[in-house]
């Protein structure tokens, strides 16, 4: 990783797309593109996966936080032809407040018997970054911050710094929250270097 000043004063981010996922509803650039009657998170994510029309068997092995981030990235990157796979020009900058607690608690419960290795591998919030990177062959900058609340400006400033000091030309930036009680709130942007 390249050492960089925190933060640049330059505004270098141009928001290309904005995505929100809350209360069984997906909004892209202000328009509802998907909603589901499924109240349970697992069912909702499965419905959304089917809606995207992608075929990626590894999706079903992911934990809920990774599924949320993975599907968000698929929706944001869809039809963005200037972003090619196998690149270090796309940064992933995520934050939330519950870290991977949703999965951590499941793993803790599994320890009462024989713990599950497949659950254990998701007991870090930044695993979602790995899943998106594997899918797209992204080799660029990445960070997952755990913060008290969503601060869009701080995350965009971080993107600005990457745009100024690294090979980064695009960034997925935003909030990827999943609470232990399965309340979720995704507020993600696809940004480009100005």
């Amino acid at each position: 990783m390249v050492a960089m000043p925190l933060f640049t004063s330059k505004n270098m981010s141009r928001v290309i797309k904005e995505l929100s996922i809350q209360s069984e509803t997906v909004i892209l650039d202000g328009k509802i593109i998907f909603s589901s009657e499924e109240k349970e998170l697992g069912g909702f994510l499965k419905d959304l996966y089917k809606h995207t029309g992608i075929n990626y068997g590894k999706f079903f092995k992911m934990d809920y936080l990774s599924k949320l981030g993975f599907l968000s990235s698929e929706l944001l990157l869809k039809d963005v032809e200037e972003i090619k796979p196998e690149t270090d020009e796309v940064a992933l900058i995520f934050a939330n407040t519950s870290s991977s607690l949703n999965t951590d608690i499941k793993y803790q419960k599994s320890m009462e018997d024989i713990p599950s290795p497949a659950v254990f591998v998701y007991t870090l919030p930044n695993i979602v970054i790995g899943e998106i990177s594997i899918r797209n062959k992204f080799y660029g900058e990445h960070i997952f911050l755990v913060q008290a609340k969503y601060d869009k400006n701080i995350l965009l400033k971080y993107a600005d710094s990457l745009f100024e000091t690294t090979a980064t030309k695009y960034a997925l930036v935003g909030w990827l929250e999943l609470s232990p009680t399965e309340n979720y709130n995704v507020q993600l942007m696809l940004c480009a270097k100005k």
Binding site: I114, S116, P117
Partner: peptide
């Protein structure tokens, strides 16, 4: 096309 984590899960399954 299983992976190494799946192998560990199969070991757990055999025991459980």
């Amino acid at each position: 096309a299983l992976d190494s984590i799946d192998a560990l899960e199969i070991i757990v399954l055999l025991e459980k």
